[in-house]
Write a protein that binds this DNA or RNA. Structure first.
Lengths: 205, 205
DNA sequence: CCCGTTGTTGTACAGTCGTGCAACAAGCCA
DNA sequence: TGGCTTGTTGCACGACTGTACAACAACGGG
């Protein structure tokens, strides 16, 4: 209970002040408790940040699972829902991006954070590979396709959150779905998705 | 001269200790000078980091230009050289990633940094759009294609630098080139590029 | 009632942070 | 040689950092 409110406060501070501001005192003030308590519950600020990272990852996975489940049984619809949800709240969110960047900044310096990142990202890619396999992508192609699709979605998500004025969530989703078209069936008439006129296939209409 | 050696030292510290370790004293010790000097040359540590970012961006652009120029006149070869160079030194480098992440972490908090990021990324995308246009991609498709390709290359570069054990530079280049195939000519027999057997087009050979 | 456990506080400590400043070295021109 | 500019140093300052620890409140079982 207290642990949970401390994690939430840590996430808020990370979002507001970045990695540099994630100090014991700031987090404690945010959670309206005394600074000593975070040592009492987590043993140190590093463990709190680590727990916050795990919690954020869990939130993202829950949101993705909900979107995929709501999409019904059709494999392609599930994959589309996965990427579309990646560009909508609560995933495409400034606070979440700031938290994630704070973690990336620790990967280079701390081995335990690096290991946690590797684990989480491997699970993310495995999930994409499963969804791609359900759409009929042969097993030998799944690994590289999942790496590529994960990189595309991540890159779009990053830039979408970093400078929101350049392109929109609908366009990001459009780009990702066009790539999925090409991954699954290279001969699909999907080129129209990449025209600038959004949300309508111009060559057909 | 001294400015240059300070920028280099700042990049080394950023690479070794991450954004959190980029303190005046650490950078000064790395450059083997007194802490007061960095205030004398840059007025503050923020300006030094900003200058380091500009220098890194310049290095990246120079490396990309060199790769494209060395590729000769063929438009497709130039585009391939662009993405392949994105996954090789000096671009795919821990120091560069750490500096870049440090800057991303400031985008949310500082408006001038956000503007600098927007400018640099727009130039990057414009460059990709030009290369795509030279390969015959119609103008109305260039914008979204450039956004998607930039996101893919960025996502691959990020993960390649963040956890180098998962996939290699050759595989990243392979993935990116396969997407370019599909962007330029959707009917190209490019599916083989996404097989797991690296560096050879299995369906042909 | 007492006692031990648990939750919680506040503070003390040693360290690092960025910045400002007085002082010293060095060149350079008059 | 004198004086001025520039490069460079090292330290003092106040604010901040994470951790450790003694002390106080609350509470349930004996």
């Amino acid at each position: 209970m207290r642990r949970h409110s401390l994690i939430a406060a840590c996430a808020r501070v990370l979002a507001r002040d970045g990695a540099a501001g994630a100090s014991v005192r700031l987090i404690a003030r945010e959670a309206q408790i005394s600074p000593g308590l975070i040592a009492h519950y987590f043993g140190g600020v590093d463990a709190l940040i680590e727990a916050t990272y795990a919690q954020i990852d869990q939130t993202v996975n829950a949101a993705l699972t909900a979107a995929v489940t709501a999409a019904g049984p059709d494999p392609r619809a599930r994959l589309d829902a996965f990427v579309t949800a990646s560009f909508a709240p609560p995933i495409a969110d400034g606070a979440l991006l700031a938290t994630w960047i704070a973690f990336w900044s620790m990967v280079g310096a701390r081995a335990d954070i690096a290991r946690q990142h590797d684990r989480q990202y491997a699970a993310y890619r495995a999930r994409l590979a499963d969804l791609l396999g359900a759409c009929g992508l042969p097993a030998p192609r799944q690994r590289l396709a999942a790496i590529g699709l994960a990189a595309l979605v991540d890159g779009l998500w990053l830039e979408l959150s970093l400078s929101p004025g350049c392109f929109g969530a609908a366009e990001a989703s459009q780009i990702a779905r066009a790539q999925i078209d090409r991954l699954i069936d290279c001969n699909a008439a999907a080129a129209g998705y990449l025209d600038d006129n959004p949300l309508s296939p111009p060559e057909i209409a």
